[in-house]
């Protein structure tokens, strides 16, 4: 259906000209979304029917996941620490400091860990994916792949999307763990909140589904962020400048998508786990 619309828009140049005069950004956006959806469908198709490139997958998992571990841990630690400071200063007013652990815990698990991890991955992996595939496109390396009957979506895109998707929940978990640790350290040792009630409230409030929600978000963000980066790279033209533009677009579009999508995911997950 969407493919049909997209084809129609591509083929029917007179309609396009008319629409263009109505509003270029508008048709641009429709065309953009249409071709992104088409790209996604193609990726799914190659995932199921194409050759499985295990080596590339592992290399990308290391590049995207393992090499991001430290930075994610660091950001997680400080996010937990600062969040503990802020909530404690609020709860102190009503003498409910022992609720800091559970509050930070829920916020981390459901929102902060998946969103911040996704944003870090956009900045770190999304940009490099877009730049790498973009450079390969403008230097005809993508054409060379095709000429050797290796489809670039199968060889370049599928492993990167898969690697990001597999690594995201792990990274979210690491962010979460370090965040909780940071909050604990700040609360117990710096703010001297009594450990007993802190932990008691934490265990009473936190449920496995809180973590589960974060992991689901992580998976969804992983898919979308890597697809956007691959798409932007794949549709690069105009040489070095084009690669720069694709990279920027991958980061901007990726971050915005994460933040907007997060709202809708939260809405959906709150209905799913009332």
């Amino acid at each position: 259906m969407i493919e049909a619309i997209q084809n129609f828009l591509f083929r029917n140049s007179r309609l396009q000209a008319t629409l263009t005069s109505v509003g270029k950004p508008f048709t641009g956006a429709i065309k953009g979304v249409g071709s992104f959806v088409f790209f996604t469908l193609e990726t799914v198709q190659w995932f199921f029917r194409g050759k499985f490139h295990v080596r590339v997958l592992f290399r990308e998992m290391v590049k995207i996941g393992v090499n991001s571990t430290f930075i994610i841990a660091l950001v997680g630690l400080f996010s937990g620490m600062v969040f503990a400071l802020q909530t404690a200063s609020g709860f102190r007013l009503i003498n409910a400091e022992s609720l800091v652990g559970s509050t930070v815990g829920v916020a981390l698990a459901r929102e902060l860990a998946p969103v911040f991890t996704a944003l870090m991955i956009v900045a770190r992996a999304g940009s490099s994916i877009a730049a790498e595939i973009g450079t390969m496109t403008v230097t005809e390396q993508v054409d060379a792949l095709k000429s050797m009957a290796v489809h670039p979506i199968n060889y370049l895109v599928v492993p990167r999307v898969l690697a990001t998707t597999l690594m995201m929940p792990l990274l979210v978990g690491i962010f979460n763990g370090l965040g909780l640790f940071g909050a604990y350290i700040v609360s117990i040792y710096l703010l001297e909140i009594p450990e007993g009630p802190y932990m008691m409230h934490y265990h009473k409030v936190m449920e496995p589904q809180d973590f589960f929600q974060g992991l689901i978000k992580g998976v969804v963000f992983g898919v979308i962020v890597s697809l956007i980066a691959c798409y932007k790279g794949y549709h690069t033209n105009n040489g070095a400048e084009g690669v720069g533009r694709s990279t920027t677009q991958a980061v901007v579009a990726g971050s915005v998508t994460v933040l907007v999508l997060n709202y809708f995911l939260t809405t959906w997950l709150l209905q799913l786990f009332p």
């Binding site: 450079t135 390969m136 230097t139 005809e140 390396q141 054409d143 060379a144 000429s147 050797m148 009957a149």
Partner: peptide, 12 residues
């Protein structure tokens, strides 16, 4: 097919 590209298009 096999193809030699004008700029060789090696994987860098």
């Amino acid at each position: 097919f096999g193809m030699l590209f004008q700029n060789a298009a090696l994987f860098d």
